[in-house]
Design a protein around this nucleic acid. Structure first.
Lengths: 199, 199
DNA sequence: CTTTGGTTTAACCGTTTGGTTAATTTACGA
DNA sequence: TCGTAAATTAACCAAACGGTTAAACCAAAG
């Protein structure tokens, strides 16, 4: 660990905030996680809200930036959908609590959304707008593409957000079986979306 | 308001807990919402955790009981799916924060899940098991029905959980337009699921 | 009217919380 | 080697928190 103190604080804060949310997180816990005195958090970031905003803004923009990369490759719309689904599932699998974290914090304080999107540099409207366009050209504007996007995101996020419930009810708390189930979803979701768009 | 003191506390607690979660809720805020002294909350329910458990257990079991009712009618599997989707969307529309609340609290403390299901009387496994059976007989066991159920629930819940984000990005914060979008989803989701199962 | 028991309240308590401060340590250029 | 500014710490603070308590209130039984 040769990263700077500020970076250590930031990474510890990210971990704790994503796991417990703004209200559930404690400054002392973040300090412990970073292995240093609590006062240092206030030395580098003035307040808890400041630290949280820095973390949240970064997670928010990075998440959408990753999505953007997926949608910029030069292939057909349907291929893009397939690649998007693969990459998005991998992205959530690597950060399983992030989507739910983003949803929770936006619901907790929806006011920050506008300034957040502006300050984050990237504009989700354009990214998701690109996505809408992919869907639109794939199904020939027969359907409202917003329904496709919402269905797609719901199908991708829910198995992660509802994991404790689903894993227990359907998989007898077998972690490996559930991981395989999550992998299978790439194919399943692709088939569902494409079948619906084509028909 | 001629309901008893205990009922008033309970309803206030339900409202605040669902809106802000266990950690975000304050006993004083619940007392204010109920229009009475904070000490009364401890007089009727011993502790915050007690009060929360009572509320959560009740919400959890009522939500699954409602789902159960939908699946018990005597019609074909495909018809049941359609009716289930209609009723489930109406149910969430009447309690838009409940699914996310349940998901959050289960993630926060997954240990309580088992005892919760046991104490709540109804067993989600059986209810969702019934649902699996409907899906199974509708698609002739060609697909793992668990994927269908997870997709279906994700498609139904996500537009409510992600509302602030989706409403802003796709509907310019037009509340009425988003409400109409939510209504359209009944048809859309039905078509998606049925098309996928039949094919 | 008085007593009795459940109900309600204001005031209080100990702990935890985010945040501050003054002093100490460290890094490093003059 | 010294001096200085940044970095780090222990100790502290006020406010907010969940929870308690003792007294006041109130309805019903005697």
């Amino acid at each position: 660990m040769d990263s700077s103190t500020e970076e250590k604080i930031y990474e510890a804060a990210r971990k704790i905030f994503v796991l417990k949310g703004m209200e559930g997180a404690r400054m002392q816990e973040i300090a412990d996680e970073a292995g240093m005195n609590k006062a240092l958090l206030h030395y580098y970031f003035r307040s808890k809200e400041n630290l949280f905003k820095a973390v949240f803004k970064d997670i928010f923009s990075k998440f959408f930036t990753r999505v953007k990369g997926t949608l910029l490759s030069e292939i057909t719309a349907k291929e893009k959908l397939g690649i998007f689904i693969d990459n998005y599932i991998d992205l959530i699998a690597a950060n399983p609590y992030v989507p739910q974290f983003i949803i929770n914090e936006i619901n907790r304080d929806p006011k920050v959304l506008k300034s957040l999107m502006f300050e984050s540099g990237i504009e989700p409207q354009k990214i998701l707008g690109m996505f809408l366009h992919e869907v639109e050209s794939a199904n020939g504007t027969k359907l409202d593409p917003r329904h496709i996007v919402v269905s797609l995101l719901g199908m991708l996020i829910f198995p992660f957000a509802g994991r404790p419930l689903l894993q227990m009810i359907y998989f007898n708390d077998d972690v490996e079986a559930y991981n395989q189930f999550l992998n299978e979803r790439k194919t399943i979701v692709k088939n569902m979306i494409l079948k619906f768009i084509e028909a």
